[in-house]
Simulated scan of single mutants.
Amino acid sequence: MNVPPSPSRSCLRRSAGRIAAKRRGVAAVEFAVCLPVLILLVFGAIEAASFIFLKQSLNVAAYEGCREAIRSTGSNAEAQTKAVAILDARNVRDAQVRFVSGDVAAINRGEKVVLEVSAPTRANSPLAGQFIDNRDLTARVVMVKE
């Protein structure tokens, strides 16, 4: 019986080197395919967190402004000042404070006071504001006047 000669060590090293080079090539291709998806996920998560923070900031400003307005001595100017101060502290740009129920001083005790605070997403986007459609986020709070 003829037994084929065993491969030499140098031949084994060459084939092992080719296999390692192929593996590095496959890893580079996988990285090139996956990197854009990973970047998109990271930037999307940052944008989503930014919009959630914006919505929460609008909610807090509307709540605190309405609390100021429902006091028996409250006025639109005081409530608006309170809401704008909160929005400024949270770096919310281009926000609008609006009293849906009208002048707070003219509202009787026990009636509803409605305050809306809105801001555009494009002006408050840290990353891709120019790539995402502009929308106005709005927070509305209804409280009964004291």
Rank of each mutant, 00 (worst) to 15 (best):
R14A: 14
L41Y: 06
V113S: 01
N2M: 04
I46R: 04
L115R: 00
A128Y: 01
A106M: 09
I19V: 15
V92Q: 06
R71M: 11
P7S: 12
L38M: 14
A21L: 15
V26K: 09
F53A: 07
A128E: 01
A27Q: 13
L137K: 04
V37D: 02
A79H: 00
P5E: 11
D103G: 10
R122K: 15
P5V: 06
I70W: 00
V97A: 09
G129P: 12
E146I: 03
G44D: 09
Q130R: 13
E47C: 12
R67W: 04
L137M: 08
R135N: 04
D133S: 09
V104A: 13
A21V: 09
D133A: 12
C66H: 05
I132S: 01
F53C: 01
G44I: 06
D103H: 06
S50Y: 07
E30W: 11
V97K: 03
I107V: 12
K82E: 06
N134P: 00
I39L: 15
A21E: 13
R109W: 03
Q56W: 02
A45G: 11
I39F: 13
A105G: 05
A20L: 15
A32Q: 07
R140D: 02
R24P: 05
A28D: 09
Q96T: 14
F131W: 08
V142M: 14
N134W: 04
A69V: 02
